[in-house]
């Protein structure tokens, strides 16, 4: 091999390796970017805990917050006060909807009696609505604007700040 040329191998190998190593630092592999943000609400028609039926048409016309939860989900207990607070203060501007995820209606109802029922409808999902939203696991919260377009998504328990940001994305001022 001719002298000198071989040293080119060093930057050729090291630069991409370095770029690759540093580019990924700080990226959390557990959060998966959502595919549904920016898209329209999927169509659905599901029974609710109080015996009525909830469809996607019910949600169009007013900003909505859709929260996937289950009685077996620990972090759902932590985020529940944030949802109750939002419902109480902003119930006129935004509609909250719960979706019971992979759970029995009886257990879900018992959970609500224990941790506080905010009075919003809770649809019981057989699993396919959660898949339509690309839910990875409860709790997960989606913010839908008045036109029925999904605008934001929070994975894991919703904090007061995440709630305010999500509401801002659908044109509701939470302050």
């Amino acid at each position: 091999m001719r002298s000198g040329v071989r040293w080119l191998l060093l930057p050729v190998l090291l630069l991409p390796v370095g770029w690759l190593l540093f580019a990924n630092i700080g990226v959390d592999p557990r959060t998966i970017p959502s595919r549904v943000v920016g898209k329209a609400l999927p169509t659905f028609s599901l029974p609710t805990l109080d015996g009525t039926t909830l469809t996607d048409a019910d949600l169009v016309g007013r900003p909505a917050v859709i929260n996937f939860w289950a009685s077996w989900c620990g972090p759902c207990v932590d985020e529940h006060p944030v949802l109750l607070d939002a419902a109480q203060r902003l119930g006129g501007e935004v509609q909250l909807v719960g979706v019971v995820y992979q759970d029995s209606p009886e257990r879900a109802a018992a959970w609500l009696r224990r941790y506080g029922d905010g009075g919003w409808p809770d649809a019981v999902d057989d699993g396919s609505l959660a898949i339509d939203f690309g839910v990875t696991g409860p709790p997960e919260t989606y913010f839908v604007d008045a036109d029925g377009i999904i605008r934001d998504r929070v994975v894991g328990p919703v904090s007061t700040r995440a709630m305010a940001e999500g509401l801002a994305a659908i044109g509701v001022d939470a302050s």
Binding site: A70, Y101, Q102, D126, G127, S128, A130, I131, V135, T136, G137, P138
Partner: peptide, 9 residues
């Protein structure tokens, strides 16, 4: 839970 739901779907 999610795996069960996806298999059912």
């Amino acid at each position: 839970a999610a795996a069960n739901a996806i298999r059912a779907e």
